[in-house]
């Protein structure tokens, strides 16, 4: 995909989304949204249900081709990738964008460790000389596999699943499944991690642990995180930057403090006062009928 790769501009943000529009037939799911996500920062995308948050993720990770727009990922070492031009399954390996899913998508019948090893597929595939070397049991593959296990072990320790490495992923409790999915995404060694509602269904303690894990990833691994979340404790607690979507449009963009006090955001979440919106004659009618 050399066509999608360009040299990195100095000081370019990690992810630069420009004029992203996604239409499904007549439905406009995302309407001309532009935002940036920096590395070493947690960028949250929030908004009411149906605002188009997951659609943004699906465009970023190649599940949808955007109707209009440019999604530039400035990889710190490999150059710039235009994600909208890449085949979906190449984005994680080449551009280093990993994601988790709103409804957890683990490999249920495979063990926890295997989930993390599968995430390192491309690396291991090269090491096994596309299976031929692996079939012969060449040392190069065995070495690569041991390194893959080490990386998996690191993330298992991080998310506290080392003792359950041999469990079938489907048998894990819900909170562990969420954490395993994050660990699996991290095993692809991404530069941008996209998390789709990671705190959904977690109890307050688990969600506090999640905050810790996400800040750890940001501070220690120095990658960018993109976060869709409804849990305001998570969003306000750890985000460095918040983008608010409503009906597919960006209605606010800024620091948590700015967004929290933005009247358009409050209106989108809490609704408007009835009387403000109604035309005066209708309001008068209503008032008359109420008596």
């Amino acid at each position: 995909m050399s066509a999608a790769r360009q040299s990195v501009a100095v000081d370019a943000p990690l992810l630069n989304v420009e004029h992203l529009t996604m239409r499904f037939g007549g439905l406009v799911a995302i309407d001309d949204v532009s935002f940036e996500a920096a590395e070493k920062q947690i960028t949250a995308i929030i908004g009411p249900n149906g605002a188009g948050k997951t659609t943004v993720f699906n465009c970023l990770t190649g599940f949808y081709k955007p109707t209009v727009g440019r999604l530039a990922l400035n990889h710190p070492t490999a150059g710039t990738f235009l994600l909208e031009q890449m085949e979906g399954f190449r984005i994680p390996g080449k551009a280093g964008v990993a994601r988790t899913f709103q409804n957890i998508r683990l490999f249920g019948a495979m063990s926890v460790l295997e989930n993390l090893i599968v995430a390192q597929h491309n690396k291991l595939m090269h090491a096994s000389a596309f299976t031929f070397g692996g079939l012969l049991g060449l040392p190069r593959y065995r070495h690569a596999e041991a390194k893959a296990v080490d990386l998996a072990r690191y993330w298992l320790d991080r998310v506290g699943l080392t003792g359950r490495a041999d469990w079938d992923a489907a048998n894990l409790p819900y909170g562990d499944q969420r954490r395993l999915e994050i660990a699996r995404a991290m095993c692809t060694q991404p530069v941008l991690l996209c998390l789709d509602e990671p705190a959904a269904g977690l109890n307050p303690r688990e969600s506090a642990d999640l905050n810790q894990l996400l800040t750890y990833i940001r501070d220690e691994h120095r990658i960018g995180l993109l976060l869709i979340e409804h849990d305001m404790n998570v969003v306000m607690g750890i985000s460095d930057h918040i983008v608010v979507l409503d009906y597919g449009r960006k209605i606010s963009d800024g620091s948590p403090e700015q967004v929290r006090n933005d009247p358009t955001v409050i209106r989108a979440y809490l609704g408007e006062e009835e009387d403000e919106e109604l035309p005066p004659e209708v309001a008068a009618d209503l008032a008359a009928n109420r008596d």
Binding site: P92, R105, F107, V118, A185, T188
Partner: peptide, 12 residues
Amino acid sequence: EDEIACRSLGIN
């Protein structure tokens, strides 16, 4: 187990 998750991990 899950084709969509495979794509998200860079498996062709």
